[in-house]
Amino acid sequence: MAERDVREVGGAWADFQVHSFPEPAADLASFVDHFWAVSWDLGDQPPYRQLVVPNPTVQLSFPNGAAQVHGVGRRSGHKVLAGAGRVFGVAFRPGCFRPFLGRSVSTITGRVLPAAEVFGPVPARAVLEAEDAGEQARIVEGFLRSAWPAPDPAAEHVASVVALVAGDPGLTRVSDLAERLGTHVRSVQRLFAEYVGVGPKWVIRRYRLREVTDRMARSAAVDWAGVAAELGYSDQAHLARDFTAMIGESPTRYAARYPAP
């Protein structure tokens, strides 16, 4: 394994990059989960490989005067940061990009495409030239209102189902989710493929692993065996394999990214 970049460890990445989450306007809440903005200035430092972990959200990002739609990615990836720059982004509620796309969200899973293919003209230059993240948010809000799709009750239903998965750590099996919804496993699978872009098993797994990273952020010491049992894993080794496959690093290696509490 290559020698580790010391800027990954103990929160050192925060010395050259800033993350913020401007609050979206309330009228966008039916489709937008959150806005995000990141800026960085590496000065004369070498480029930095930023780990990007997957989430069950379609993203609209505005990097360097462009605009891109990112389908849900099943595994982690890296973005290389060099020099100075900034990106503004929109994370759509899981299930709620389907009305904008007009077709199954699984057709863009793992893909990045020009936003104009989905939305038509996009104010990428205005977002690039905006003074700060607050102004970027206002520009993007106006754009999203102009692109507002027709209502789709199924999108709201799927968003509520994903919220149920996210909020219940004891929910670890698709069959349990189907039973909770009073339907069949296959029906849940079809609904998730159409509206989320990935299956319910993947979504459950991702949110249970987020429980793990949340605990890392809160504490330097994690009872791995206890967490594995609580989240429905047969043993600690199974949790470690699942974590590494999705996040791209072992739990202990990933935990080192956080500053000491």
Rank of each mutant, 00 (worst) to 15 (best):
G197C: 05
L239W: 00
Y254E: 03
V87L: 10
V118P: 07
R4P: 11
G43T: 07
G77S: 15
P46F: 06
D44R: 09
S76I: 07
L101V: 12
N55Q: 10
A130C: 12
R210Y: 11
V105N: 03
E117G: 14
A228I: 00
F97Y: 11
R215Y: 00
S146V: 07
R205E: 14
G120R: 14
F31L: 13
F100Y: 15
A150E: 08
G11D: 13
H78C: 04
R93Q: 13
A237C: 01
A91E: 15
D152R: 07
G43M: 05
A12W: 04
D33Q: 09
A225W: 01
T213F: 04
W13H: 03
D132Q: 08
H157D: 05
V58N: 01
F31C: 01
E179N: 13
G197H: 06
D152G: 08
V162C: 06
E8A: 09
D168Y: 11
P153E: 10
V90G: 01
F62Y: 14
N64R: 08
G83N: 09
F35P: 08
A150T: 06
R93M: 10
I108W: 04
Q236V: 09
V32W: 00
S61M: 13
V188I: 11
S104D: 13
L209A: 02
A115V: 12
V87F: 11
A225T: 07
W36M: 10
R190F: 07
T244C: 02
C96R: 14
V127N: 06
V58L: 03
Y48P: 01
G170I: 12
G77M: 14
A150V: 13
